[in-house]
């Protein structure tokens, strides 16, 4: 496949069957390999779409400074696109993220400002909003509320899935900004309304939920609950177990958040087997395992990995 530039190659990722993890010949699992994007994660789609849309709207022009709260992948994707298109990028990232994320951000030329570990991404959003208010000339594309984030999946991920798997019955993805689920979900609501849209939400250690008050919670502006069929909370133990199983059984080396998504996908598959219905369940491989090697997720027992991930933003 040939493209005019790296940015033109974003998306069009392979969908691969999982013949060994699928529970039966009638209930099949399919992995969409989003780690095959230029920076190795699904976030390349949203980053490119947000910058292209802001340029089209006249909100930004080369030379401008962009600001973004991110737990890592979106920042890395934005840094890659920003470098290609001539923008400066400042990322606000929680300090409890893997060291590879900082290294990658710096490599692609971004500046990193850390937000406190306690409170996780909520704190990163709060710090970024404060900085944006202090620096009116910086542009915050704001992945949590930017419609171009979901639109990238409505225009790309959704149609790719339907073209590759016309018999799709379920779509399972991670719930972070909600962009993937909202965009793909909306696409299927319009083009194949029977497809169930299932969210897997990472359940972190207690540090991450360290809010001062329950009214200080955060729901991304993009989130529309009516798009989802169901929503599961997956802890680090199940996520790591599935991530290792995916490597062991199917040879796919994925990150921890993919393990959480696979856990929900396998739960869904088992329900279909029990109900005696056939199913084609597609799920997202968000990124590869490379960025998580330092976290300890691949070493030792499940207990070791669970301890190592406690307090970290692993998805």
């Amino acid at each position: 496949m040939r493209f005019d530039s790296l940015l033109d190659s974003v998306g069009h990722t392979p969908l691969v069957g999982l013949p060994r993890l699928s529970p039966s010949a009638d209930v099949r699992l399919w992995a969409k390999l989003e780690d095959r994007n230029p920076t190795g994660s699904i976030k390349d789609r949203a980053a490119l779409a947000m910058i292209a849309q802001a340029e089209a709207d006249g909100r930004i022009k080369p030379g401008d400074t962009l600001l973004e709260p991110t737990s890592g992948n979106t920042g890395i994707s934005l840094a890659m696109v920003a470098k290609q298109r001539g923008y400066k990028l400042i990322c606000v990232m929680p300090e409890n993220t893997s060291s590879e994320r900082t290294q990658l951000l710096l490599m692609w030329g971004a500046e990193v400002i850390y937000s406190p570990a306690a409170g996780g991404s909520n704190e990163a959003v709060r710090v970024a909003k404060g900085l944006a208010a202090e620096h009116p000339d910086w542009v915050m594309l704001y992945q949590y509320g930017n419609p171009a984030n979901a639109q990238a999946h409505y225009d790309g991920t959704g149609p790719e899935l339907l073209a590759d798997l016309p018999t799709i019955t379920h779509f399972v993805a991670g719930l972070g900004t909600t962009g993937t689920l909202m965009g793909v979900g909306r696409y299927f609501r319009e083009h194949k309304p029977d497809v169930e849209i299932i969210a897997a939400e990472p359940r972190y250690g207690e540090l991450v939920y360290g809010l001062r008050n329950i009214d200080e919670g955060f729901i991304p502006e993009l989130y529309d609950a009516s798009i989802l069929t169901s929503r599961f909370s997956v802890g680090p133990r199940d996520a790591v177990k599935r991530m290792r199983e995916l490597l062991e059984v199917e040879g796919i080396f994925a990150g921890v958040s993919t393990g959480a998504i696979l856990h929900a996908a396998i739960g869904t598959a088992n329900k279909c087997v029990k109900a005696g219905v056939s199913a084609d369940i597609a799920f997202i491989v968000c990124d590869g395992g490379w960025k998580y090697l330092s976290t300890g997720a691949y070493e030792g027992t499940l207990d070791d990995a669970e301890d190592a991930l406690d307090g970290q933003l692993w998805a």
């Binding site: 909520n122 992945q143 719930l175 929503r231 909370s233």
Partner: peptide
């Protein structure tokens, strides 16, 4: 499983079920 996608407050609960309460936080 998020109870908002079950039957909300009317969701039936059985012996030995486990309930988890969490504040909504940002991901991404």
């Amino acid at each position: 499983e998020d109870v908002r996608f079950l039957d909300g407050l009317s969701t039936p609960v059985a012996d030995n079920d486990s309930i988890t309460i969490l504040p909504a936080v940002a991901g991404g």
